[in-house]
Amino acid sequence: MKVGIPKAMVDYEYPVLFEKFFENLGIEIIYSDNTNSQILEDGINYSVDEACLASKIYLGHVYNLIKKSKEEKIDYIFIPRICSFKGNETVCVKFYAMYDICKNVFDFNFITLNIDLKKKQNELKSFLNLGKKLNIGYIKTLRAYRKAKIYEKQYNRKIVDSEKNRLKESKNTPNILIVSHPYVVYDEHLGKPITKFLENLGANVFYSNINDSIIDKGYQNNYKKFSNTLYWKFSKNLLNGINDYIDNMDGIIYLSAFPCGLDCLVTELTIRKLNDLPCINILLDEQDAQGAGIYTRLESFYDILEERKSRKKVLS
């Protein structure tokens, strides 16, 4: 059996769990290509125009897989449906809707997994249901899920540790924290050119989505320094990250895809509470990044950080 996974949005939020689960069951995974102009263009064509850039790209990836299935014979395209977690914790509605949107837009076999605690569907149950749909036995599914979960834990610990080491060894050049959803900042078309540009200038780039709270539940309430009432799981994670890194950073770049409802609230809130650290807010839209003066902003922002850092050294 072959399952296609679109390499966008939700896949970046769960980078290994789904992949390992399928692998443990002996199911082959076909990924969509890295985001490129063609995928973006297809995504725009299949979306309503008011959807956010990241979700448009998701549809482009689904279409990319459907095109691939002509040669590779993909049985299902896997689109998880993520809704609610413990307490009032929830995610952006795009994650609720993506499975249904794709089912309506494309004519293909889609398979889903429904994490919705309000409807009594926790992660374990949802994986067992997924196994049932794939005609795989209960014990085998359970074992595959447990193994994937253990792997996920190890993976998270590894990336957090390696980031911490990188921070310790970081050179004299400015440290920049990027506060952005992983599906924006790690995307080959959206965030990668920006982080590459910053690194070429000499900056040490860190990502707020990789932080202690993803390996240790004890850190999960750090976001409360910014807001008590926030209920978006992924935004909470980013704020936890800001709290982790902030003492060692010279500047913050808020990077979001237009129009992101979560970011427009959370970014504004954070900027107001962190008013002594230089920051810029960069909105990515369908226009080519090079044409929109983004690099001018990034370069001058970096100049400011560099100047401040060298000034600080002189004073101390």
Binding site: L283, A292, G293, S300, F301, I304, R308
Partner: peptide
Amino acid sequence: IIIDYAMNTL
């Protein structure tokens, strides 16, 4: 030294 800037968008 320059400490902050703003630039109009598109």
